[in-house]
């Protein structure tokens, strides 16, 4: 099986051809070592950082931005999203606070990527 990718490691954007031959993965077209690594990863198990928001109550924002502590398998992305979209938090939240530990048994945590203070929700009068 042969697959083609655009390397996203640097702006060169090398066109990679990755192929499995006799149990060995061969990367062609890469300009550097990091490109080879990327090619192998993309071929076997493409991974991405996950960023999105979760619902938060009691702050000046209605959503808290979150980020994964490491890359996660791309083909499970929507599974993680679904799990994250069920979360409802109460402010305050500290940056780095774990929102979901070991999401989908991946060994990677989802953490808050900013702090959010609690605010008093008072009805403002005109």
């Amino acid at each position: 099986m042969k697959k083609e990718f655009t390397c996203i490691v640097c702006p060169m954007s090398c066109a990679l051809t990755v192929e499995e031959k006799n149990g060995e993965i061969i990367v062609l077209g890469n300009g550097c070592k990091r490109g080879k690594e990327f090619g192998i990863n993309e071929f076997t198990d493409p991974k991405r950082m996950v960023t999105t928001t979760v619902k938060v109550m009691g702050s000046h924002l209605k959503r808290l931005p979150v980020i994964s502590t490491d890359e996660l398998p791309l083909d499970h992305l929507f599974v993680y999203m679904h799990e994250l979209y069920q979360v409802v938090l109460e402010a305050p939240v500290e940056k780095g606070q774990i929102i979901i530990e070991n999401i989908g048994n991946s060994g990677v945590d989802i953490v808050a990527s900013r702090s959010l203070k609690q605010i008093e929700l008072k009805k403002e009068n005109a």
Partner: peptide, 25 residues
């Protein structure tokens, strides 16, 4: 930056892939 929740910020400065808000923090 506070509305840029995606990663890719601060590669040069912090050597990490931060979100925009993480970078601002």
């Amino acid at each position: 930056l506070q509305q840029c929740i995606h990663d890719g910020f601060g590669l040069h400065r912090f050597g990490k892939r931060l979100s925009g808000c993480g970078y601002a923090h």
